[in-house]
Amino acid sequence: MGNTPSQFTEEELRDYEDLTYFTRKEILLAHEKFKAISPEKVNHNKNAKLSMNKMMSTSELSCNPFADRICQVFSSSGDASGDCTFEDYLDMMSVFSDQAPKSVKAEHAFRIFDFDGDDMLSKNDLKQVIQRLIGFNNQFTDLDMEQLIQNILEEADLDDDGSLSFAEFEHVIDKSSDFTNSFRIRL
């Protein structure tokens, strides 16, 4: 143990290699980064659970308006705390990496945008997404917001049920060439 890169056994590394889109080097790099968030804790236990606030302080997530959602989605603790272990972090970076296919990214994006977790992007979800997107310094009037959501639903809600299902969401994503580029964090 200690500071050497071999905090992992060969077996673990092979598992990680098989189960993420990373190569061994990148996995170790990811761990370095994870360690940098809270060195003592991670040195003590390589798979320590870090609080969401700690996670959100990393440069990758600090400016992201969806940082808390990302933590919550990838957290394995199962509640809304958003605490992440290294494995969660690795999962996160793997999904955000270049190698991850669009479908995987889309699935996670859907969950990030699905604030209430009902597997549908309802009007409320959309509203939150938009608000986070334009920042809290900027405001749309209620009328504009309503109009905007209406426009989105007009475009994407194929069955007119007032919210977007995953299938509909995926459909939109499939047609967007920007998505893979923007839904990406370089390790």
């Binding site: 400016c63 310094n137 426009n151 475009e155 967007s176 990406r184």
Partner: peptide, 22 residues
């Protein structure tokens, strides 16, 4: 899909600079 693109693909998840995020 112009609205959807803007909303769902608008944010650069790679941004990590406070000023440019603003």
């Amino acid at each position: 899909y112009q609205y959807c693109n803007l909303i769902f693909c608008g944010w650069d998840f790679s941004l990590h600079n406070e000023k440019s995020a603003q």
